[in-house]
């Protein structure tokens, strides 16, 4: 079991970072629907090969939902119904589908252990502040969601923001009662986090070694080549008028 776990391939954090950047570049230059679909399928294949097979179904569903929203928006726009609504629906559907590609890689980058992430960014010779910033930002968004849920449930217990009508009729007060604890909690988390970082020696300016080993191997390179090849092929076919 232990040996199997050791053998299992886990991409290097730098690979996820490069995937993110490559994904952003690809969605900017690839414009056709089929080209974007190829890119998305390549993204799913990469997740499958990287051992994230469980993510394929939800991402596929998101893609279909956003396709449906886009299709509905375009259909309404074509029949001249409520232009302001239909145009926004179509934009949400089209842009969100594109964003799924880099976002899915960013989620994997955020899932990397903080130590590995810091070591990988240090190996890229990025300033320490950039490493700390990236690690904190990627990790903090799920924390905000958790804190928000905890505050909401405690406010509901006190009868604040119970139901849509109550929330809308007392909107400023509800916003204040949710926002202020969220901000206070965030400053507390920030203070605890900086204390924890100091204890772990983040401020140490000398040479540091990571507890977790990070290694950019041929499998990482192969996955990057796969995404690059799909992007270039889609772009080439698009420019030559095939797609």
């Amino acid at each position: 079991m232990g040996a199997e776990k050791r053998r299992r391939f886990r991409p290097d954090p730098r690979t996820w970072l490069l995937f993110c950047l490559l994904g952003i570049a690809a969605i900017l230059v690839i414009r056709s629907e089929i080209g974007c679909l190829c890119l998305f399928l390549a993204c799913l294949l990469i997740h499958l090969l990287a051992g994230n097979g469980g993510k394929i179904l939800p991402y596929g569903l998101y893609y279909l939902i956003f396709y449906g929203i886009g299709w509905l928006g375009v259909g309404l726009m074509d029949s001249g119904v409520a232009f302001s609504v239909s145009s926004m629906l179509s934009s949400i559907g089209i842009v969100s589908r594109k964003v799924l590609v880099p976002l899915s890689f960013a989620v994997c980058l955020a899932g990397e252990p903080t130590g590995s992430l810091m070591a990988a960014l240090q190996n890229l010779h990025l300033p320490k502040a950039a490493g700390i910033g990236t690690a904190v930002v990627l990790r903090f968004f799920p924390t905000i969601a958790g804190e928000y849920r905890a505050i909401r449930s405690s406010q509901r217990f006190r009868g604040i923001g119970v139901g849509v009508l109550h929330t809308l009729t007392h909107l400023p007060a509800t916003a204040e009662y949710i926002l202020i604890p969220l901000i206070l909690r965030t400053t507390k988390v920030a203070e605890e986090l900086s204390a924890s970082m100091t204890v772990r020696g983040v401020r140490f300016s000398g040479e540091t070694a990571s507890y977790r080993s990070i290694r950019f191997c041929w499998k990482d390179a192969a996955l990057l080549v796969l995404l690059l090849a799909v992007s270039w092929t889609a772009l080439f076919l698009e420019r030559s008028g095939v797609l």
Partner: peptide
């Protein structure tokens, strides 16, 4: 400082 950097970073995330 590191503490202030993290505070600004997290509040900017919020």
């Amino acid at each position: 400082s590191l503490k202030e950097f993290v505070i600004v970073l997290l509040l900017a995330c919020v």
